[in-house]
Structure formats: structure tokens, C-alpha cells
């Protein structure tokens, strides 16, 4: 059974490109447009979460904290998407338990590599 990945990002193009790349690599992808939407979509089997940091409504760090507190998903690996400019955010994220980071802008292959390290298709 294919691994399921939840991707949380407010950019439709990032979601779409990631979705295409991950689907081709053999993953099943669920999309969410921000942290709040992401929490709403936490259901059933999810093997990995990819989340942007800077999002409207609920940002990635708040979302991450909620995931870590969720009884069913606290052990789910989370990859955070950040930029060089967001060093402060990164520290905040680290404190919240984020271990895996991808720095934007990235190539689809970089994301696939990172995903493979945490959950091989």
C-alpha cells in the first residue's frame, strides 16, 4: 500500500509540483492550504507531513506543535519548508521538535530525496 503524505502549503503551485513529483515517485498525496486546513485533514493513515512555515491563518510552527500534541500523529515525521531568511523561525521550529528542513527554493528532486530518507515509497 502506498505511503501517504500530507503537504501543507499556501502556494498552489508548490502543492501542485510537489504532488506531481511525489505521485510519480509512488506516494499518495493529500493537500492542505494552511495549518488549519492541515489539522482538519489529519485523518487515517499519514506516513509523512510536509509543511511550509509561513502561511496565513495558521503558520507552520503552530501546526507542527499541534501535530506533536496529537495522540495519533505525534510520531509522524514532519519536514518543514523554510527560507534562508527564516533563521529565527527555524530556531522556533527546532524548539517545537522539527528535525527535517528543506530550504526554499528547492528542486523537486531535493524534496524527493528528503522524503525518501524519512519514508521510502
Amino acid at each position: 500500500m502506498a505511503k501517504r503524505i500530507l503537504i501543507v502549503d499556501d502556494s498552489a503551485s508548490v502543492r501542485q509540483v510537489s504532488n506531481i513529483a511525489l505521485t510519480r515517485a509512488g506516494y499518495e498525496v493529500i493537500e492542505a492550504t494552511d495549518g488549519q486546513d492541515g489539522l482538519a485533514k489529519l485523518a487515517g493513515k499519514i506516513n509523512l507531513i510536509i509543511s511550509d512555515v509561513n502561511m496565513p491563518r495558521m503558520d507552520g510552527i503552530t501546526f507542527l506543535k499541534a501535530v506533536k500534541a496529537h495522540p495519533n500523529y505525534k510520531f509522524t515525521p514532519v519536514i518543514m519548508l523554510t527560507t534562508e531568511a527564516g533563521e529565527d523561525k527555524k530556531n522556533e521550529g527546532r524548539a517545537a521538535g522539527a528535525k527535517a528542513w528543506i530550504v526554499k527554493p528547492f528542486q523537486p528532486q531535493t524534496m524527493l530525496d528528503a522524503v525518501a530518507k524519512l519514508c521510502l515509497a
Binding site: S11, V14, P105
Partner: peptide, 20 residues
């Protein structure tokens, strides 16, 4: 900021280095 940030992030995905 978020607009610039998002455009930069997604243009990188498409290899649009000039915009990045």
C-alpha cells in the same frame, strides 16, 4: 513579505532562477 516569499519559493521549483 509572504507574497515575495511564496513567489520566490515556487519559482525555484520551476527552475526560474532569474525570478528567484
Amino acid at each position: 513579505f509572504r507574497a515575495a516569499h511564496t513567489i520566490k519559493g515556487s519559482s525555484g521549483l520551476f527552475g526560474l532562477d532569474g525570478i528567484v
